[in-house]
């Protein structure tokens, strides 16, 4: 899926609303979901690229999806998904599961979400 397709997908999400999408026959991909988390696409991609420079072995779309998104992510209500990711970020910070990008202390989860985006 290229950026134009992302944008179309996002516009679709925006028009239909998340719940509408989930209820529709087409199941959103990880890319589409992660893309819709970010309004500042370029910023997220930029962060993701920095992350992948530090952790080149993680430049694996399927692995990042499995590691970062909860099971059944594409079936979850978006608020629940967001809440789950938020809890995962807090857990990362609690456990010290953080990464330093240009000195910024970020949760692995949030950095990997950006990395997912950067891979598409």
């Amino acid at each position: 899926m290229d950026r134009r397709q992302f944008s179309l997908t996002l516009v679709g999400y925006s028009l239909l609303g998340w719940s509408g999408l989930v209820q529709s026959s087409s199941v959103p991909s990880a890319t589409a979901i992660v893309t819709s988390l970010f309004t500042h696409y370029e910023s997220a991609v930029n962060l993701g690229q920095r992350y992948l420079t530090l952790f080149p072995k993680e430049a694996n779309y399927d692995w990042l999806t499995r590691t970062t998104l909860p099971d059944g992510y594409n079936q979850l209500d978006f608020q629940i998904l967001k809440q789950t990711l938020k809890m995962q970020r807090q857990k990362d910070f609690y456990e010290g599961n953080t990464v330093m990008l240009d000195g910024w202390i970020l949760a692995h989860t949030e950095a990997r979400l950006c990395a997912l985006l950067a891979l598409t």
Partner: peptide, 26 residues
């Protein structure tokens, strides 16, 4: 030049407020 400061602000606030973000995107 490092512009990550804005990137970090954008990404984190996006993750906190995605619904609002979609609204502005739309």
């Amino acid at each position: 030049a490092d512009n990550l400061r804005h990137d970090v602000i954008h990404a984190i606030t996006d993750l906190d407020n995605f619904a609002e973000g979609l609204y502005y995107r739309f």
